[in-house]
Simulated scan of single mutants.
Amino acid sequence: MDAQRRTVLAAGAAGAAALVTGCGDGGGDTETDLPAPPPATQESPTGAPADAGAPDSLPPAGKELTQTADIPVEGGRIFADEKVVVTQPVKGEFKAFSAICTHQGCTVTRVEDGVINCPCHGGQYRIADGSVARGPATRALPPEQITVSGDSILLA
């Protein structure tokens, strides 16, 4: 069976080579015979760059979630729309975790007394590192990327 497979692969490679060879215009095989690529940025009829919003464009620097003053020391705040919880375990140190409980996917609802609380089955996570403080969850909340810029907390 391996001999048949090799034959098919060899025939496939030979066919691909023939297709590539057949795609030329017969005028030569150097790079200078290829048409020039389009300009890097083209304008649409509205005057905006045609590639605006293209998948290969750079993402924005970050979405502002809140101000540092809005996150209590030894506490935190849940951002349900973004599915993230931001904590401040000690003054000036901000952490972020997924707001989705690792037990059964409920969204956490409260941050108090140094823990992030899940309402579904009473699970708790530590605000300093997202680790399990009380089950039934057995896995920590995954960390999320945030950036503190001045007084703003940005979701990366």
Rank of each mutant, 00 (worst) to 15 (best):
T7M: 11
V8P: 00
L9H: 12
L9E: 13
A11H: 05
G12R: 07
T21I: 12
G22R: 07
G22E: 03
G24V: 06
D29R: 13
T30N: 09
E31T: 13
L34H: 07
A40V: 06
Q42H: 00
P45R: 08
A48W: 13
P49H: 10
A50Q: 02
P55E: 11
P55C: 09
P55F: 15
P55H: 03
D56M: 00
G62P: 06
T68H: 03
I71H: 11
E74L: 13
E74S: 15
G76M: 03
G76N: 07
R77G: 08
R77W: 01
I78D: 06
I78V: 15
A80P: 11
A80W: 01
A80S: 11
D81L: 00
V84K: 05
V84L: 07
Q88A: 11
V90Q: 05
G92T: 06
G92D: 14
K95A: 12
K95E: 14
A96L: 06
A96P: 07
F97Y: 14
I100F: 05
I100T: 13
C101V: 09
T102E: 12
C106W: 02
V108H: 08
V108P: 05
T109Q: 05
R110C: 01
R110P: 00
V111P: 09
G114F: 03
V115Q: 07
N117Y: 08
P119T: 11
C120T: 04
C120F: 01
G122W: 06
Q124G: 00
Q124V: 05
R126Q: 14
R126Y: 06
I127V: 13
I127E: 11
A128D: 11
D129G: 06
D129Q: 04
V132R: 10
R134P: 02
A137C: 13
R139E: 14
A140W: 03
P143M: 02
Q145G: 02
T147S: 13
V148G: 04
S149D: 15
D151H: 04
D151P: 00
S152N: 15
I153W: 13
L154H: 01
L154R: 10
